[in-house]
Structures are given as structure tokens and as C-alpha cells.
Write a protein that binds this DNA or RNA. Structure first.
Lengths: 221, 221
DNA sequence: ATAAAATTTTAAGCGAATCTAAAAATTATA
DNA sequence: TATAATTTTTAGATTCGCTTAAAATTTTAT
């Protein structure tokens, strides 16, 4: 079944939101916000995707991916993340500039292209933002990553993953000079607003707002 | 001005047809045939492109590119040919499989992407089919290439360029084992149907139909 | 020179993907 | 639990890129 870029995007975002929400049900309004479309458009499209058996959609309740829909969503993510890897590793883009380009490249239709690209890149397991790249069969390498907001004090972590959807945030990370794989230890957390003091690579200490921490994901070192 | 992939395609094909036709005017029907759309659709789109000052369109007469339109067409060709080069040189695609993929990739919107790709490939001057790749400013490296049908008997040529739009033809070239840069000498031409006997690399002699010769372009060795 | 043939345009319409405004259903609150 | 607030759906409209059929124009042939 050949899908439009629009349909692929819907599936991708349903997948991503259902990951976050933890329960599998995604609400119309959340999708509308993510896609920057009206809720009415979303309802329309969900009906179409439902007709194609790509999602299970129940009026006024929400939507979840079918087996087939999920498979497609994961393959779109695979393409997105492989392309991002290529852009950074081979074309020397900085990570704050690749998202929009990968959003376009992920919809190129050719299985052979993406397989060869995967081969060319040496079957990478994670993309430049630290997100796992699903393999051809759709399997992810998962690692025990938690949000920095949920990390414990005084414990040694490494930065494993960052939210890639805000260019402003990625620029901020560049500015304060934190990169993936850097060591992070929380030394203090302000009760009032959850601002935290963290030490990077056992050297510099900096202050991070809760809003920033929400976009950073770490695993134990 | 941001154009749709469809509009970009129209400009690209108008450019290519005007190259062939030699006079700059492209006819509605020729475009319709090339694009595999109805003549009516073409008329519609030509009006739109005319409104945007990308073409000069005169009813019942034909269409030609404006300065701006030509510039865009050439940049689309640049992208197409750089991507084809990448697909063959880096991803090891054979030349008969790249056209459809490059047709998609040529519409990715990012100047930085294509500049970096050009750099990454080492500023190639010709693509895998022998077509010149325009530089960032739109300049082609032209070479004195003529169609094999117009080549003289007994004179030494090399294959400089082939028509890349028919997969069947490219497969045929693979089968008879002719590649770009191979030496070609016409030893005989049948007056009745223009079938020719040619010698490849001073070794094998083969028979080529006029239809095949129409898709092959040579320059003097 | 005129009739026939071919080309091109116009007109009307369709499906996809969006929108806005308003109605309906659900959920939260007093 | 009744009502207010929120969310979601429905209804109707628009734009884009395409179609077919009919009308207009140009080209070709007799």
C-alpha cells in the first residue's frame, strides 16, 4: 500500500505520542497540536486511516496504531533517523539543522535506497540525537534511558538522548557545550522551581532549568 | 518563492524539451506527453506558472522559460544529477535503477544540503549518464556531444552520454556491455532502416538499431 | 481555398488535504 | 446533578492538481 507523506506523518506522530503517553491511546487534540493542524482535519484523516486499517479509531475516545500501521510508522522513523545520521556523520551538518531536512527525506519511497544507506552508514544503532534506529525488521535497541527530571541526586549519568524537535533547544545545548555521552551529575535541585545544578564531565558546574531538563535523557554511567 | 514538486517538474521538463527543440518554444502536447498528463492539465499549469512569471506562455503558440524559471529548472537538474551521482558512486546503485529515486530526491528543499552534497562528492562535472551537472551558479560544462545518429562513418568517437529516462534502454546497454567512455566507430549504416554496425573499443562489432542510436551521444575521441 | 485533421483551450468536475464555524458529545465543576 | 467548560465531530468551503468532453484555433491536405 502506497501512502502519502501526510499519511506517513500521521502514523509517525501517533506512534511517538503513544510512546510518551504510555497508554496507547492518542487524543485528537494532541495530534492536532503536534501536526499543527486543526482538530477537524485530524478527525478527517483518522477516519481515512481507519478505513485503511492502519489505526483503530473510536469517536470521542482516541486512536491507536494497528499492527500494520505501527510497522509503517517505525519504518518512517527508521528512515528519518538514518538520514539524520548521514547528514551529521557524512555531510557535517550540526544537529540543530537536520530535523527539517530529515522530515522531507523520510518520505522518499525506495526500500533499496534505505537498505543501502543503512549499509553505507555501517548499520548505526542510534541517531545523532541519541534516538534508537529501528532495524529493517522494526526492532529497536532500547537502553535504560530516563528523563533528567527523574534522575537521582549525586549519581553519575551520561547524556544519552535529547529532544530533537526544538531547534532553539539544540542551539542552547551547543551554547552551554553539552554533547551526547557527556557525564552528568546532579548536585542540587531547587525545591521551588526544580532548577538544578549539574556537573558536566566532573569539571564545569552549570545551572539548568526544569524546562531544559525535560528535554534531556540520561542513563546510568 | 517556494514551488511545489509539480511546478518544479514542469519547469524542468520545459527546460529539457526546449534544449532538444533548439528553438526555445515548447508545445503543450509535447509537455503533456512527457509528463504523462492530459493537455488540459498542462494548459492549466502553464497559466499558473505564467502568473508567477516563471514562463512566457502564449495561447495556441507555446511556452518558454523566463530568466527566473530557467534558473529554477537548472537548479532542479543540478539536484537530480548530484543525487544520481551519489546513488551510483557511494551507494553502488546501477544506473538503470536511479532515475525514479532521483526524481523524488530532486525536490528536497535545502540549499545547504545540495551544497554539502556537491562538496562531499568532490564537485563532479558529469553524472552517471554523462549529463553535465550545473554548478551552484547554473553554469554547465558543455562538451561537443552529438547524437550517434549524426556521427560520421569510420571516425573514432567515445560514448559521452546516454538517455537516462528509459530503464529498458539502460538495461539493454548493460546487456550488450557498452559503458560511458567506451570507444565507438561506425563501420556501416544500412540505408533502408539506418541500422548500424559499430565497433566497440576496437574489439567487438555489434549491430545497433536506429532507435537505440537515437539514445546514444558521442564526442570525437 | 477550403475542408478535414490535429492541437490546444475552456468548462465542468473530482478527490485529497486542508480550513473555519457551529453543533454535538464528553468531561469537569459548582 | 445540573450546568459550564472543553474536546471532538460534522458541515460546508477552498485550493491544488488532475480528469474528460466540447469548443476554438491552427495546420495539413486536397
Amino acid at each position: 500500500m502506497l501512502l502519502s507523506a501526510t499519511e506517513e506523518n500521521y502514523l509517525k506522530y501517533i506512534f511517538q505520542l503513544s510512546e510518551i503517553a504510555d497508554e496507547n491511546i492518542v487524543k485528537t487534540n494532541d495530534l492536532a497540536y503536534k501536526l499543527e493542524h486543526s482538530a477537524a482535519s485530524v478527525t478527517d484523516m483518522l477516519k481515512k486511516l481507519s478505513d485503511k486499517k492502519l489505526v483503530a479509531y473510536k469517536k470521542y475516545y482516541g486512536v491507536s496504531l494497528s499492527k500494520n500501521g505501527k510497522q509503517i510508522a517505525v519504518q518512517v522513523l527508521r528512515k528519518h533517523r538514518l538520514w539524520e545520521t548521514f547528514l551529521v556523520k557524512n555531510l557535517k551538518f550540526t544537529w540543530d539543522k537536520i530535523h527539517d531536512i530529515a522530515e522531507q527525506l523520510e518520505h522518499i519511497q525506495s526500500d533499496e535506497l534505505i537498505d543501502r544507506m543503512d549499509e553505507y552508514l555501517g548499520h548505526p544503532k542510534f541517531d545523532p540525537h541519541g534516538d534508537p534506529i529501528p532495524d529493517k525488521k522494526g526492532n529497536f535497541s532500547m537502553s535504560n534511558v530516563i528523563c533528567l527530571t527523574d534522575a537521582k541526586l549525586k549519581k553519575q549519568y551520561v547524556l544519552a538522548n535529547v529532544n530533537d524537535e526544538s531547534t532553539a533547544f539544540l542551539k542552547y545545548l551547543n551554547k552551554i557545550q553539552i554533547s551526547l555521552q557527556d557525564k552528568i551529575k546532579i548536585v542540587d535541585k531547587e525545591a521551588f522551581d526544580d532548577t538544578m545544578q549539574i556537573i558536566i564531565n566532573d569539571k564545569k558546574q552549570i545551572t539548568i532549568s526544569n524546562d531544559a531538563a525535560k528535554n534531556m535523557f540520561v542513563k546510568v554511567d
